[in-house]
Simulated scan of single mutants.
Amino acid sequence: MAKKTIQPAPKTFEEALAELESILKQIEAGSLGLEDSLTKYERGNFLIQHCRGVLSTAEKQIELISGSAEAGVRTTTMAREMDEDDENDEDDKP
């Protein structure tokens, strides 16, 4: 059985896609042994989840930007918005 390891995240979305495409080609070629195939499959699943997370964050940021452009609200980055939420949560604590 494949050992669970901590997966290093790719530096960019494009790097993740390129690695995922490479893994897919290797598995489809059928030249890998069972253990190597399982390891590659596990890495591929990690990359898919990573890409989904990046896309979800980008989608939320686009919605935020689009909403602010339509409603005349100021545009903020996701990081700034999250920091402001954290500050507001601290104010609510007794």
Rank of each mutant, 00 (worst) to 15 (best):
K3N: 10
K4G: 08
K4D: 12
K4C: 06
T5N: 03
T5L: 08
T5P: 07
K11A: 15
F13M: 12
E14Q: 10
E15H: 13
A16K: 09
E19N: 04
E21F: 12
S22W: 10
I23L: 12
I23N: 14
K25F: 10
K25V: 09
K25C: 03
K25M: 10
I27A: 06
E28D: 15
G30P: 10
G30C: 09
L32M: 11
G33H: 09
G33I: 08
L34E: 14
L38P: 09
T39G: 09
Y41G: 13
R43E: 09
G44A: 13
N45I: 08
L47H: 07
L47M: 03
I48L: 11
Q49T: 10
H50M: 09
R52S: 10
V54W: 13
V54Q: 14
L55H: 14
S56A: 15
T57I: 10
T57C: 14
T57Q: 15
T57E: 14
T57Y: 14
A58M: 14
K60G: 11
I62A: 10
E63Q: 05
L64N: 05
I65P: 00
S66G: 01
G67S: 02
G67W: 00
G67K: 02
A69N: 05
E70A: 09
E70S: 08
G72C: 06
G72I: 07
R74N: 03
T75V: 04
T76F: 02
T76I: 02
T76P: 00
T77A: 09
T77V: 03
T77W: 04
R80Y: 05
E81D: 03
E81M: 02
M82Q: 06
D83R: 02
E84W: 00
N88I: 01
N88S: 00
N88V: 01
E90C: 01
D91Y: 04
K93G: 05
P94D: 14
P94H: 11
P94T: 11
P94I: 06
